[in-house]
Nucleic acid binder design. Structure first.
Lengths: 216, 216
DNA sequence: CGCTGTTTTGATTTAATTCAAGCATAGTGG
DNA sequence: CCACTATGCTTGAATTAAATCAAAACAGCG
């Protein structure tokens, strides 16, 4: 609906710790594997990725993990219904974010366009999550990996070679599989001639059409 | 955030066909199994359940189906990013809805409170869907059914006996299982003494605590 | 070069699916 | 009132896709 983002802010050039956030827009940097927020923590800010990659996940008491999304530059995350985080967010690689106070964005003095954009972004998240439900509920391992590679290729601008930021274990927890199964499906796609692995993280898509057909 | 819904409308007392909807709020009635909208159809309205139960689902080309949500009275559904429906909605039992034109609710002359409420409801949907990702990606069949029964009990007001509107097949497509597995898990819960089946649709929760422990 | 963490590959097990009957329950009409 | 049909549910036996368990290979990095 809005072509130009109303929530594009130029980060101010002073440092701030999370937990001590001023009200407008705060730049933050996280090293590899750093926690951005954890399930159960007090919420109140939403985050926009400037650079890097973020994983958002939920845990079961026994340690089983489900990653609900990977966030790339331009994405926003951290939206919460109440004042507690319901999921954990971590930087997969060194990551720069900007934090916005939710109250400021949505309070009574907030711009109607900003609220509409937040609605739009939340709906994008809902759409993505619903598509992912179909993947987790009804697709087999090969279909899941094919869909994942196409999703990443799409998000990274339709390139034919993609650099995956995340390890096999994260891909597995995103796709509801084990890392061994993910590895086997990579091997299977390779044998079928639809991908080439330059390294375990650098994937060439040799036949996007075949992948699309497989992703069901 | 809003305790009292800003989108509570008293249905007007005239009949209207879907596809020919006036701009404010239109009551509609659907018989059992009637389609409310289908994947690929033109969107533009959101719906609020007055009575009955609605299932929202997505299909794969070969017929595999994933139900993303069951909607009960008071729920709203039909939110779409663009102007096409991305899922199918059907009445599970005879159902009454009110339709609202999306443009009217969110356009430039819309009330800020209404937009905030839509944001809030979309975030509720997102939260629900993320929890469901964890269920589909990481829980076993017994945990899924236990979680489902608790969810339904919660939505129906914490009663100890619940009347399920949907057949086993719909429960299966919601939980990412087959109907046979769902039936077997009902039997298992029965053997464990956590539920009693008065009929296949009328379930008594005998030990909600044990169910909660099992739902993981 | 030798850790450390990650990925691949292999053998085996298992949870859930698939295939196949049988059983209820509720309507319908003779 | 009772067969008759349709629909939905349960149960059993066999199969299978993915998980688990177990090593080995690989890739960085200090």
């Amino acid at each position: 609906m809005l072509t130009q983002s109303a929530i594009t802010e130029y980060p101010r050039l002073y440092k701030a710790e999370p937990g001590n956030l001023p009200s407008i827009s705060v730049p933050m940097a996280f090293p590899r594997n750093a926690e951005i927020f954890a399930e159960g923590e007090r919420a109140g800010y939403v985050y926009k990725v400037v650079s890097g990659v973020v994983r958002v996940s939920q845990l079961l008491p026994d340690g089983r993990r489900q990653i609900s999304a990977f966030h790339l530059p331009g994405d926003m995350f951290g939206f919460e219904l109440d004042d507690l985080h319901h999921a954990t967010a971590e930087a997969i690689v060194p990551t720069k974010l900007v934090a916005f106070k939710w109250q400021t964005l949505t309070g009574t003095s907030a711009s109607a366009n900003v609220v509409r954009e937040l609605l739009n972004r939340t709906m994008m998240g809902l759409r993505h999550t619903q598509d992912h439900l179909l993947l987790l509920g009804r697709k087999n391992a090969l279909e899941r990996l094919a869909a994942f590679l196409l999703e990443m290729a799409g998000r990274l601008g339709g390139k034919t070679v993609l650099e995956l930021a995340m390890p096999r274990h994260d891909i597995a927890d995103y796709l509801g599989l084990t890392l061994e199964t993910v590895s086997r499906m990579f091997a299977e796609l390779k044998e079928m001639g639809t991908i080439r692995l330059e390294s375990s993280r650098r994937v060439h898509l040799l036949d996007a059409g075949k992948l699309k057909a497989m992703a069901a």
